[in-house]
């Protein structure tokens, strides 16, 4: 006998097994794996980008006639890469076979340590980056011309190592600000690139902690 769709629906679900809810287990297994994998993938891409950038600085420095500046910037980037690799090696020791909460918690601790280390590193990175640029600028033709113009226009100006004192003070202040705010600059940069995915990681961790209680 032919049945209406309403009948098929009603009689089909009379079988009690048809509506047995699946067990809710390892709720965040997939999510935590996905988010961590995403962070790791982004990190790898970032490292490749940094290697390319280091090469560009080095070659660009030679081509532009500022080899020392190119070398210093390139070395700064290399130091950044080495620090990131050091941390990534630590991550390899995390046991993925433990439960997803423990895994994501360990990863979160790792990333917190990673960020703290890089915030400290950035307090040297940005000032050195800036100072090397200023020192290089001082010895370029344009830099010499500008300095000569300033000095000859104001013969009474006080000088420090042949440079007007006020310029030395400005450079000192900017360097100090960069040293103080280097960590914040790093966090700003980090948030632009990883902000969304790190927020997701935090949300998952908060949910998992709430689920545990």
């Amino acid at each position: 006998m032919e049945k209406s769709i309403e009948n098929i629906w009603k009689t089909g679900f009379i079988d009690h097994n048809a509506l047995v809810a699946p067990k809710i287990i390892n709720l965040y297994n997939q999510k935590s794996i996905h988010v961590i994998d995403k962070i790791m993938r982004m990190g790898k891409v970032n490292l490749i980008y940094l290697v390319v950038l280091a090469a560009i600085f080095l070659l660009g420095g030679f081509i532009a006639g500022t080899p020392y500046l190119g070398l210093v910037w390139s070395l700064l980037i290399v130091a950044h890469i080495l620090l990131a690799l050091k941390h990534t090696n630590v991550l390899k020791n995390i046991d993925k076979s433990v439960n997803s909460y423990q895994y994501i918690k360990t990863f979160d601790e790792w990333i917190t340590y990673f960020i703290a280390d890089f915030m400290l590193f950035s307090r040297f990175f940005y000032p050195i980056f800036f100072l090397s640029f200023v020192i290089q600028a001082r010895f370029t033709d344009a830099g010499r011309k500008i300095l000569n113009y300033i000095i000859t226009s104001n013969p009474d100006m006080s000088l420090f190592l042949g440079v007007p004192t006020f310029i030395v003070i400005i450079v000192f202040v900017v360097t100090a600000v960069l040293a103080l705010c280097g960590g914040l600059l790093y966090k700003l940069d980090l948030n632009i690139v990883y902000g969304r995915v790190l927020k997701k990681l935090n949300e998952i961790l908060t949910d998992m902690e709430e689920l545990k209680h």
Partner: peptide
């Protein structure tokens, strides 16, 4: 084929 009832599966 999730259900034992074949008509329901078809639906």
């Amino acid at each position: 084929r999730s259900f034992s009832d074949e008509s329901l599966n078809q639906l």
